[in-house]
């Protein structure tokens, strides 16, 4: 018990620096020293095995790190490139939509979705009002080949069967070739810009443009005669054909000209003419004729 008391005393005294708690008792000190003794050979017998395990693990870790680094490098290249391409594509589409250069249907979609952002409607969105009479929609541009074919069809030159088929297809039928060629001739003879202008107002204000060719009353007064229904069939043909061309097709021109008037003539006065025709039929001729006759 004396030993124990000495031990407890030592422990109380050395609580802060208690690395050698067992100092007090020789037997206990011996025990602790034995427990702390240097390694025996049997304790270290497993050294080679463990060091080999260490080396193997290091090799495996190095391989894994290399394998992990490779896809990371590929990803580091691929991600920015893909993002850049996507950004380019989006920007291009946005610019095309903003300037109205998308394909017609896509532009229509873009306009419906982003009209608030200033995306315009398709420029050639309503081609039908201008050529409501003829089914051949997409042939308003002056086409030299079409003009040549029309000349050939009229008999100026031999018309090959291929050209004939092309002409029929372009006109939308054999019976419509006369009307079609009339249009081709007009667009070819007049300055090249005459075709687009009527398109612009018709696209910008579709509602006024549609009724004008459809309802005959606003269109027919334009020749200048006050009576709306009577004259168009007899008198108008000479007048528009006069400034444009001297010789038009005899029977067909009667039916062909009204649409052509609607396209070419109002085109120049559309800003003025579109508003008046609606309120009164009588007011329209007075305004149209002064500007219509000098031309």
């Amino acid at each position: 018990m004396r030993h124990l008391r000495a031990l407890l005393h030592a422990m109380r005294k050395r609580r802060s620096t208690d690395t050698d708690l067992a100092v007090g008792d020789p037997g206990l000190r011996r025990l602790i020293e034995a427990a702390r003794a240097p390694a025996t050979a049997s304790e270290l017998s497993g050294e080679k095995q463990m060091v080999d395990a260490f080396t193997a693990e290091r090799k495996r870790a190095a391989r894994a790190a290399r394998r992990r680094r490779r896809p990371a490098r590929i990803r580091a290249v691929l991600v920015p490139v893909t993002a850049g391409l996507a950004l380019l594509l989006l920007t291009g589409t946005a610019v095309a939509a903003r300037t109205g250069n998308l394909p017609q249907e896509a532009q229509q979609h873009a306009h419906r979705l982003f009209s608030a952002l200033g995306v315009p409607a398709p420029r050639t969105g309503t081609p039908s009002p201008r050529e409501s009479g003829s089914p051949s929609g997409p042939a308003p541009t002056p086409d030299l080949a079409a003009f040549t074919r029309c000349e050939a069809w009229r008999g100026a030159a031999p018309l090959s069967s291929h050209d004939r088929r092309t002409l029929i297809a372009a006109a939308g039928g054999e019976h419509a070739i006369g009307r079609y060629c009339e249009k081709v001739r007009q667009s070819a003879s007049s300055p090249a810009k005459t075709a687009p202008p009527p398109a612009a107002p018709s696209a910008g204000t579709p509602s006024p443009a549609v009724p004008s060719p459809g309802v005959p009353s606003p269109g027919t007064p334009s020749p200048g005669t006050p009576s709306p229904a009577g004259p168009p069939s007899s008198e108008p043909p000479p007048k528009p054909s006069g400034p444009a061309h001297s010789g038009t097709q005899p029977p067909k021109s009667g039916r062909a000209t009204p649409p052509s008037i609607a396209t070419t003539k109002p085109a120049k006065q559309q800003p003025k003419a579109t508003i008046p025709p609606r309120p009164s039929v009588a007011a329209a001729p007075t305004r149209v004729t002064p500007s219509g006759r000098p031309s």
Partner: peptide, 18 residues
Amino acid sequence: AMRGLRRLATHPDVRDRT
């Protein structure tokens, strides 16, 4: 730790060895 050491100190083997 203290209790463990106290018990070890009273162990007959430790005292015998002492």
